Simulated assay, not measured.
Amino acid sequence: MATKLVFVIFILCCQMNLAQDLSKLYEDVNPAVVVILTEEKALKQVGAYSQMISSEGLGSGFLISETQILTAAHVVGVAERVLVQFFDGEIIGATVSSSFDEPDIALITLAFPKKNASVVTLGDSDRVKVGEQVFVVGAPYGLAHSLSSGYVSGRIKNGNASNPFTNSEYLQTDAAINTGNSGGPMFNLEGEVIGIVSHIKTITGGFQGIGFAATSNIVKELLLKRSIPWSGAEIFPLSEDASKLLNVPQKNGLLVQRVVRSSPYGKLGLRGGTVKATINDTDILLGGDIILAINGIRFEMTDETLKKLGDYAASVKSGDPIVLEVLREGKIIALRN
Results as ranks from 00 to 15, higher is better:
residue 58 L to G: 01
residue 221 E to G: 01
residue 221 E to L: 14
residue 62 F to D: 06
residue 258 R to T: 04
residue 42 A to M: 11
residue 188 N to P: 05
residue 190 E to F: 14
residue 92 I to V: 15
residue 113 P to G: 09
residue 244 K to I: 00
residue 88 D to L: 13
residue 12 L to W: 01
residue 133 Q to M: 12
residue 129 K to I: 08
residue 74 H to N: 13
residue 222 L to K: 12
residue 95 T to L: 05
residue 147 L to K: 15
residue 326 V to D: 03
residue 272 G to W: 04
residue 60 S to D: 06
residue 327 L to F: 08
residue 151 Y to H: 09
residue 91 I to E: 15
residue 83 L to H: 14
residue 171 L to P: 00
residue 324 L to E: 00
residue 39 E to R: 15
residue 114 K to H: 15
residue 305 T to K: 11
residue 234 E to F: 08
residue 304 E to V: 01
residue 85 Q to M: 14
residue 207 F to E: 07
residue 152 V to E: 05
residue 233 A to T: 02
residue 31 P to V: 11
residue 1 M to S: 11
residue 293 A to M: 09
residue 18 L to W: 12
residue 247 N to V: 02
residue 149 S to N: 09
residue 259 V to W: 11
residue 32 A to K: 09
residue 237 P to Q: 05
residue 245 L to C: 09
residue 278 T to S: 15
residue 19 A to C: 05
residue 267 K to E: 05
residue 261 R to Y: 04
residue 232 G to F: 07
residue 266 G to N: 05
residue 250 Q to F: 06
residue 208 Q to V: 12
residue 84 V to T: 09
residue 268 L to P: 01
residue 273 G to P: 14
residue 211 G to M: 06
residue 217 N to D: 15
residue 68 Q to C: 07
residue 272 G to V: 07
residue 229 P to K: 10
residue 308 K to T: 02
residue 285 L to A: 07
residue 226 R to E: 02
residue 250 Q to V: 05
residue 162 S to P: 01
residue 148 S to F: 01
residue 223 L to D: 08
residue 22 L to S: 10
residue 132 E to V: 04
residue 36 I to C: 01
residue 336 R to Y: 02
residue 147 L to D: 01
residue 174 D to P: 10
residue 231 S to E: 08
residue 195 G to P: 04
residue 45 Q to P: 00
residue 249 P to I: 10
residue 254 L to Y: 10
residue 146 S to F: 06
residue 226 R to N: 08
residue 266 G to C: 05
residue 258 R to K: 15
residue 9 I to K: 15
residue 78 V to M: 03
residue 301 M to V: 01
residue 145 H to V: 00
residue 229 P to Q: 08
residue 217 N to P: 13
residue 231 S to A: 13
residue 31 P to W: 11
residue 46 V to G: 00
residue 37 L to V: 07
residue 324 L to I: 04
residue 308 K to Q: 14
residue 93 G to H: 07
residue 160 N to E: 02
residue 118 S to L: 05
residue 329 E to T: 09
residue 44 K to A: 07
residue 224 L to A: 06
residue 11 I to K: 08
residue 206 G to H: 02
residue 86 F to Y: 09
residue 277 A to I: 03
residue 124 D to W: 12
residue 287 G to P: 13
residue 19 A to K: 14
residue 66 E to Q: 15
residue 59 G to A: 04
residue 55 S to N: 06
residue 230 W to N: 02
residue 275 V to S: 09
residue 176 A to S: 10
residue 206 G to M: 02
residue 130 V to I: 15
residue 152 V to N: 00
residue 154 G to P: 14
residue 301 M to G: 00
residue 192 E to H: 14
residue 2 A to C: 02
residue 271 R to K: 15
residue 222 L to P: 00
residue 11 I to H: 03
residue 187 F to I: 10
residue 64 I to L: 09
residue 176 A to L: 10
residue 56 E to N: 14
residue 297 I to E: 12
residue 194 I to H: 13
residue 205 G to S: 10
residue 91 I to F: 11
residue 282 T to F: 13
residue 184 G to Y: 05
residue 263 S to M: 05
residue 314 A to S: 13
residue 85 Q to N: 11
residue 325 E to I: 07
residue 9 I to T: 08
residue 52 M to I: 07
residue 259 V to F: 14
residue 103 P to Q: 08
residue 176 A to M: 12
residue 19 A to Y: 10
residue 256 V to M: 03
residue 288 G to L: 08
residue 55 S to W: 06
residue 234 E to K: 14
residue 90 E to K: 09
residue 213 A to F: 05
residue 102 E to C: 09
residue 30 N to H: 09
residue 97 S to M: 12
